[in-house]
């Protein structure tokens, strides 16, 4: 891929980010620590260079992120110098909610969707950036770049505003909010190509390394800490794996890989025969589950 190609994607995303900064009352950028967030962070830095990013970044911490992710989050906040907010739904620690005890659907609903709604209301954020891409999932492919949420953060996919050219109608009534997706037109391969071109720092989990894993339902689950209960007779084995996508650790499966460099990751991505979301347990909860989650306020 040539530079001009990335220039087009980059310029479109920067235009979107600046448009929000120019029109929103109180914007915030969702920061998930993953590769897409890393790209979005770099684009925000570029959009306002030489000034700082004029809005905070927000991490919804489910309490079940890989340890390396949390370490990376702290490092980036220091190095990039953005204002970092973190939020955990108080119900999580209070009720001991987790993906293993409560199942992926309930855990995601409470610790991600509900937490997100709580923190947006808490700070009265009117616009929230997300790193979602249209190539990820079928209902995302249908979503606008400026995506409106009725009071209560509900998405109505059947009544999206027309969105022509790059004229983004950012007008909202009280109680309404907007989710904005600057990476809408990027693909997984674009993300990796851009990370390589720009040399953007990413969580080391994306690179192949020997890690302790167990096989569950045909997928490699990493044993990140003692909270993953082992089945009788199950012993973690050391395997060279990496992650194509990062979420909560028992909900994100690793793939066997030897890709230790960005070049190797790009080559592997271009030759991939399965989609990255295959490693996301949450998407397999049922057909149309992503659309339903989004209607309820999930990103």
């Amino acid at each position: 891929m040539s530079d001009t190609f990335f220039s087009e994607l980059e310029s479109e995303a920067i235009e979107i980010i600046r448009e929000v900064a120019a029109t929103a009352t109180k914007p915030v950028m969702l920061y998930s620590i993953g590769k897409d967030s890393s790209v979005m962070l770099r684009l925000a830095q570029k959009a306002f260079y030489p000034g700082p990013i004029p809005f905070p970044l927000l991490h919804i911490d489910t309490g079940w992120k890989f340890r390396e992710m949390i370490a990376f989050r702290g490092r980036m906040a220091r190095e990039a110098g953005f204002k970092l907010l973190t939020y955990t739904n108080p119900r999580g620690p209070a009720e001991g909610i987790g993906p293993i005890t409560h199942g992926s659907a309930y855990h995601t609903d409470v610790m991600k969707t509900e937490a997100l709604k709580q923190v947006l209301d808490l700070h009265s954020f009117d616009v929230a950036f997300g790193g979602a891409r249209r190539d990820e999932e079928k209902s995302r492919a249908k979503e606008r770049i400026f995506s409106f949420r009725a009071p209560g953060h509900r998405w109505n996919p059947k009544a999206q505003r027309p969105e022509l050219w790059s004229l983004y109608n950012a007008r909202i009534n009280t109680g309404e909010t907007i989710r904005v997706f600057p990476l809408s037109n990027w693909t997984e391969a674009d993300i990796w190509g851009y990370i390589r071109q720009e040399n953007i720092p990413i969580v080391p989990l994306y690179f192949a390394a020997v890690r302790p894993v167990v096989k569950r339902d045909g997928q490699w689950i990493m044993v990140d800490d003692h909270r993953l209960p082992l089945e009788p007779g199950e012993t973690p084995q050391m395997l060279k794996v990496r992650f194509r996508t990062l979420g909560c650790y028992p909900l994100t499966a690793a793939v066997e890989s030897n890709a230790e460099t960005l070049e190797e990751i790009v080559a592997e991505t271009l030759g991939a025969t399965t989609s990255e979301r295959q490693g996301r347990v949450i998407d397999h909860d049922g057909a149309g589950s992503m659309e339903r989650k989004k209607q309820e306020g999930y990103f």
Binding site: R134, K138, S139, A141, K142, P157, Q160, E291, R292
Partner: peptide, 22 residues
């Protein structure tokens, strides 16, 4: 069905909104 991603679209077998694919 690869592009009609909304539940309402799949149930009715029609396209309601624009889908972007790459």
């Amino acid at each position: 069905l690869l592009v009609d991603g909304l539940q309402a679209e799949r149930e009715q077998g029609i396209t309601i909104d624009v889908a972007y694919r790459f």
